[in-house]
Design a protein around this nucleic acid. Structure first.
Lengths: 280, 280
DNA sequence: CGCTGTCATACCGTGGCGGTATCACCGGAG
DNA sequence: CTCCGGTGATACCGCCACGGTATGACAGCG
């Protein structure tokens, strides 16, 4: 009675996105009638109306919206499963770790030194780690709580640290011993840089949009922006930068993250190594 | 090049479980030759050898083991998606919350009072919540950290409490004001009750195996066992029971949990209600 | 009242799935 | 060594289901 076929899910997602059978069929590379039939068959099998075909267009029912969300997750999962299987066949026993370029450099070094097996390290842009874990291109990631979206992952805490404000060295605030969040909010001519959110888009605001550490470093050195980062970011500062501790910012915990259902023995091994290395 | 069909995954999982094509075909209700062909086709499509067909049986390659894990998750996910869609169509806007029978009774009452919409409450046996969330029979669950396996779920902390030892009132230890874990480990004639683990099996040990609060209550009243539970369990104690605070046991946090990718608006609503109710 | 654009229906051909029969291969019993 | 039982692979065939084309039903619109 159930058994959703991935072909049907692919078809349904496309129709739900286009809200138009002909365009969806076009995107799928098939004709419209078989698509209509496939959706009808899916609805009949589930015993649920997924789409309202009114005059003036197609719209999702509540159940259709639920299935759309579920189907997207399933299709992504299927693609990820294929990739993970292929990676497992190719690099037997190798592990791919993904981290933001420049973040937690010493920590990563320590981790790699402590771990016995071979690890491929992939550096990615901010917030890309989750996607790479989810789509099967990586096995584990270094991520930061509370910044990164950790939903759907298992995690092991590695290191908790305070945050610091990174400023142009020439700016008056750079001389302070400590700062509070209130001090750095709305500094004239020195807006906070903006990172992409979980969906890759930016919140509106006055600061420049950045997605790489090097971008940020340059913009700060030029005196165009400032940023709030964890204390270990000091390792990549330039002489034109200054780091001032923040007294009232949230602590940042760097965590090792992996897909919740992963039973990859190499991942388990790395996690064990990490937990003994960093809790001791 | 990818696009794993669920039919193929179903076939592969069965073969991987049986490690025997004919038996697997039998379980699937098809003949052996089409099954062999389907697996070959899957291997060709992925470009990966999933099974070693040696004389003396079939065995999984490393890549095959990876795909087996992934495929199980995907198939479970597909079944869950179907159920969630059907539930969404049937009880429009209703929410199903699952909790252990007897656990966190007052907390649940408070939550239900605070929430506006209709909620179906399902009581289940210990550790069943995760399964019901995963397979789509429930939308949200009350679970306890660190007892329950929360991997793959999003959670919102509701209440943290100390643990207490629940003893037969007649036992000498019941007179104590407080106890430590050392005091109650290896008490002659009063072993700790054992719960099922995440996989439903029991660790070996001297105490009786229990999976329901009522079972436990009776066994304690009879003087056959004792248990360590969170402080709010006091609400269901009998007169034949005594609760003694434990000084050095882990705190227990009751959390609201839901599938990580859920975008069910009713769930989001309940979570918002819960977080304002319990953090204020 | 046609014209256009939508999704549904009718019908048809083909490819893929599943079935049966058989092969190739190996281990074990004699 | 030979035969037998049992394995998975191969060969071949029939049928269903998927996809294509043609057309229908129906609403909006000039």
């Amino acid at each position: 009675m159930d058994t959703l076929e991935t072909r049907e899910l692919r078809y349904f997602v496309t129709v739900a996105e286009e809200l138009h059978f002909s365009r969806a069929a076009d995107r799928l590379g098939i004709a419209q009638p078989p698509l209509s039939r496939a959706i009808q068959q899916l609805e009949r099998r589930l015993g649920v109306t997924l789409l309202d075909r009114n005059r003036r267009g197609v719209s999702l029912t509540a159940a259709g919206q639920v299935l759309l969300d579920e189907a997207r997750v399933l299709l992504d999962g299927a693609a990820a499963a294929a990739r993970r299987t292929q990676r497992a066949a190719a690099g037997s026993g190798r592990l791919t770790l993904v981290t933001k370029a420049g973040a937690g450099h010493e920590l990563l070094q320590t981790l790699l030194d402590a771990h016995a097996g071979p690890i491929d390290v992939v550096l990615c842009r901010m917030g890309e780690q989750a996607r790479m874990l989810r789509d099967g291109r990586a096995d584990v990631a270094l991520m930061q709580r509370p910044f990164d979206a950790l939903a759907g992952f298992d995690t092991e805490d590695l290191l908790t640290e305070q945050q610091v404000a990174i400023l142009p060295a020439a700016h008056p605030l750079a001389a302070r011993r400590t700062l509070s969040m209130a001090d750095i909010r709305d500094v004239p001519g020195l807006p906070l840089a903006r990172w992409p959110g979980p969906d890759g888009s930016y919140e509106p605001g006055p600061g420049p949009e950045v997605h790489e550490q090097s971008q940020l470093a340059q913009l700060i050195a030029l005196g165009h922006t400032m940023a709030v980062l964890c204390a270990s970011s000091r390792s990549w500062l330039w002489s034109a930068h200054a780091a001032v501790p923040l007294t009232d910012a949230w602590d940042v915990t760097t965590v090792l993250a992996w897909p919740a259902h992963s039973r990859n023995p190499a991942v388990a091994d790395l996690v064990r190594t990490a937990s003994t290395t960093f809790t001791a």
